[in-house]
Amino acid sequence: MLEATLNFKLLEMCSKCGACFSICPSATHIPGYDPRAVIKDILAGTYEKWLSSAHIWQCLECHFCLEICYQHYGFENAMTALRTVAAKKGMHPPQVKRGWDMFIKTSRLGEPTLPARKKLGLPEPTASGADEFKKLHALLKDAREGHKTE
């Protein structure tokens, strides 16, 4: 359930357009970062080489491509799909792995710093939602298992 998917019909149009190329900060400032090449490979079914490429993690998700896109689709969708496949194969950067582990374990990407809060005169942090979050994560896992066996 709820898996990221690609719309190939829209991507076909992307391969003939390239408006996002002119506004994408990574395409402007990172040599070799080329939305058009990626889209071409996805459509040809030869995207495998991008899974191990650093470029798919250089998409900044700034949403410029989405805003300038005549289809309001956006190249970022292609990059998200590639990153999702790469992550499933365990090919994501170590920092992303660490971040995900911390998120799943604690429901946050860091805890409020108590001594600094005290020094600044800030109130006690509000109660954490971690327990309920963990329950929800377990429920999602179960729902997925059920979905598979149906």
Partner: peptide
């Protein structure tokens, strides 16, 4: 009470859209 991470899109969405 009860807020968690929003969550951070570039990190969480790339790994698990449902979560």
């Amino acid at each position: 009470d009860g807020f968690t991470c929003c969550p951070e899109k570039s990190l969480v969405n790339n790994i698990d859209h449902a979560m």
